[in-house]
Write a protein that binds this DNA or RNA. Sequence first.
DNA 1: TGGTTACTGGAACGACGTTCCAGAAGGGAT
DNA 2: ATCCCTTCTGGAACGTCGTTCCAGTAACCA
Lengths: 229, 229
Amino acid sequence: MAKAKAAAERREDALSHDRIVEAAIELLDAEGETGLTFRALAERLATGAGAIYWHVANKGELLAAASDAIIGRAMAGVATHASPQKTIRGIALGVFDALDAHPWAGALLSRGPWQTGMLQVLERIGRQLQALGVPERAQFTAASTLVSYIFGESDQNATNGSSHSRTASRDEFLGVLAARWEALDAREFPFLRSIAPRLRHHDDRAEFLAGVDIILAGLAASPRKPRSH
Amino acid sequence: MAKAKAAAERREDALSHDRIVEAAIELLDAEGETGLTFRALAERLATGAGAIYWHVANKGELLAAASDAIIGRAMAGVATHASPQKTIRGIALGVFDALDAHPWAGALLSRGPWQTGMLQVLERIGRQLQALGVPERAQFTAASTLVSYIFGESDQNATNGSSHSRTASRDEFLGVLAARWEALDAREFPFLRSIAPRLRHHDDRAEFLAGVDIILAGLAASPRKPRSH
DNA sequence: TGGTTACTGGAACGACGTTCCAGAAGGGAT
DNA sequence: ATCCCTTCTGGAACGTCGTTCCAGTAACCA
């Protein structure tokens, strides 16, 4: 308390872990993954690189904290009072939209051994699976399958999306991708060639949710005891 | 051909794109992601950094080529003459084991707009889905769901696994993880606490395959037309 | 034989993550 | 009031990285 008070009084805009993370997020959003450097961060915070290291161990910890914050905010905004299925879709969409808005966060969340952000998602999904009546033995497998899919597909979508600017060139991007698939070798890639035209009217979000529903259908098909209420 | 011949005659161990990629893979396997530097690569190839740049555009292309090679080799080894379900499990396990053996490759494959390695997996899975009788409209969604799950969970598993050395300390790693989950706040993380004990007898591969089966069950539950043969 | 092309490798550049340290600013003890 | 001690600052410096540049070498072609 004496510590925090002293820090707060040193400068009215005193440096703190939270302020550094927030500045890092702004920098990452504005300039992309390569935009976050300790020099740029120090300039934005009007300080030196050494001062930042007093509050943050290294760049890895800073990136982890930034992506955890992104997921934390997304999870704070999801509704949890609908049916379990709808709530799971809401959680999934929360992650999807968060990574779409902050594409740099996706790479960091798969990385690292079970960070806080992913634990939050796992926890929330697990609770809904319990409410769905998934037997205890199957709960971990089910939750982990959903989480892997959610982060895998969201990250994939985010990194694809960050290459084109916005909805403007989105159709163009899909068109180029479709053309490239259609130009693949006919013997080696018959399947990709056959579905390439569908790429042009592709709705990322709808496609993503359809994947969630496939997994939910798979869980419903497995033996489960219905919830008593 | 004149070009290739000239290159081959310059030195019996002439530099080439393939030789560089192979050396990069060896370096990545031996030293991890941070071990691949152009200096270390030049030393291993007994040349200078500039010579490498004649064959490779930049580090990103080199990493992409290396991870594509890992997936390519894995796909070359999977059996495709069993039932569609079994073949899909074989493809999934091929990716899983490849990323487990080369943990650095996982991060690179999610990244980048649809690289060759992932396209190969998508193609092979798509063909099996066609054989399963999945209707054409649903094929892309189904294939993309499976691929996202496969790479998402495999990458997750690989990065977790690379922190401990091998099966020796694997149980220890799981024990520490379980203890950490059990120590979480009881109000905020009731689900994680409840399943933490299961973590101690956790079989990654079996768990991964169970996830694949959930998705396959979900596909089977959706309307489909049976294959006529 | 002379020039052209294909390729080599080492030196150099700028930027990065990180460390180091001299010092400022306040609080508590004397 | 004075001193120290902890907390915190910020700029300089170090080593390493990806990448570029370029002088040089060997095979081929006219």
